[in-house]
Design a protein around this nucleic acid. Structure first.
Lengths: 247, 247
DNA sequence: CTCACATGTCTATTTATCTAGACAATTGTA
DNA sequence: TACAATTGTCTAGATAAATAGACATGTGAG
């Protein structure tokens, strides 16, 4: 018997939906790919059958479950995509082999004075000009992440124009004569998505995002990119590569 | 003006609390350490003043805000702790310098047959005996993470007994003659906490956890530990170290 | 075909959340 | 002291979520 809490600000159907999602990703119903009946679930969570139906309806809407009258409720989508993060993280290669199609959409760009965080990360004087790029990335038509990236404007003035042509950060760096670069640091946190991210990633309120804050640098250590990304936590997980060299 | 969504399964006061929390961690009110008045916030979120009051009450309960009648509402706790993850990740050293006191509590332990996931990660035959350790870790009295760790029972039969005496995984490995070990891989995901984690970490329903799945190995590559940890996402963030060697 | 069991739909009622407004209590300042 | 701005506490009503029960509809097995 699982327990849910009342008056917590999260509706019962939502708590139940969350727990069913967790149970699925724990492989709880794997043998049959079939959920217990509505009556059984209602008993398990100690709620009315209609409340369970609301939870199931929302998971079906998300594409996690598929409901068939007379037959039952079945698990439709199971695993998250894996997004690798290591010293040579490149978005374009990240999801290779896991999806058929991926697309990066440039939502906005501008040249502006660097916010404090950005100038610090890039080792610039406060207020130096930087190029800001806002992108949304999708895999098989489903948006999985939203990113804001900053580059020193002095060196990369027409970054946005080249992005429209080349469509990949790695390719652009190459066009600037930078054949290799490394991930210096990554900071990861998780929280509820803000309204802008909700809409970009087509999520519903209360959805969870993984936020990464990353710095990329040339092999000589000069920082060339600072970025923050938001990943839809129910669609993707991060896979950290600690390298295989023994130093 | 921020927007919140109705009929989403998340009560309005809860959505507002989440957004205030995000705004705080974005440094939005940093100059003054003071939140806008209840009337201003109600206008900003397009809700009734009482709804904002509910949100503030819950954040005050959590210790994020402090309310003073006649004066205003102030930011009490600001930053998350940072938990570093790298090739030499050790829990006991992780929060050094950020907290006054930390404690690891052994909740449960047993010797049992390895689940499929575990035997695969440790490179054992399916069903081999393993030692399982359940711990809850707190910083300054606030629980921040819950971990389940598995070790090959053949080599580390009395791991749990030694834990009670030594209190640190690193020290135990040393007592077995293993002076150094490395993090091989880390997988990170985020989701709502399950009921057991809610209670261990003293969280309320709908709380978010960062889950890490990690493998540690000796320097020769032999896996010696597989563990899954749950971090309270509003209390901690993960800081990935990609190493400083150029390989 | 018949039955058991599954999901779908409807009505009614109770409980929780949100809104609305009035006024009290506290604080800092002119 | 008087005042403006803040949070605290009531009451009442509207809206949304959850419960309860009855019955319809679809599926598969015997």
């Amino acid at each position: 018997m699982d327990f849910i809490e009342r008056r917590s600000g999260i509706s019962l159907w939502r708590q139940i939906a969350d727990q069913i999602r967790i149970a699925i990703s724990n492989g709880e119903f794997d043998d049959s790919h079939r959920l217990p009946g509505e009556v059984a679930l209602a008993k398990r969570f100690s709620v009315n059958r209609h409340t369970v139906r609301s939870a199931i309806a929302s998971l079906a809407q998300e594409g996690v479950l598929r409901v068939e009258q007379g037959r039952g409720t079945f698990i439709e989508r199971h695993a998250r995509l894996q997004y690798p993060i290591g010293r040579r993280t490149r978005f374009s290669e990240g999801l290779a082999g896991q999806t058929r199609k991926q697309a990066g959409l440039l939502k906005d760009h501008a040249v502006e004075k660097a916010p404090a965080k950005v100038s610090r990360a890039l080792g610039l004087k406060p207020g130096s000009p930087v190029v800001r790029l806002e992108t949304v990335n999708a895999a098989d038509g489903v948006p999985v992440s939203r990113a804001t990236a900053w580059f020193p404007a002095e060196r990369f003035a027409d970054f946005a124009e080249r992005y429209k042509k080349l469509g990949s950060v790695t390719a652009i760096f190459k066009s600037y004569g930078i054949s290799d670069y490394l991930r210096v640091s990554t900071r990861i946190s998780a929280h509820h998505a803000d309204p802008a991210t909700l809409s970009d990633l087509q999520l519903s309120p209360g959805a969870i995002v993984l936020e990464t804050e990353a710095i990329n640098a040339q092999v000589d250590g000069t920082p060339i990119e600072y970025s923050t990304s938001f990943f839809a936590a129910d669609r993707i997980e991060l896979d950290i590569d600690h390298g295989d060299s023994i130093r």
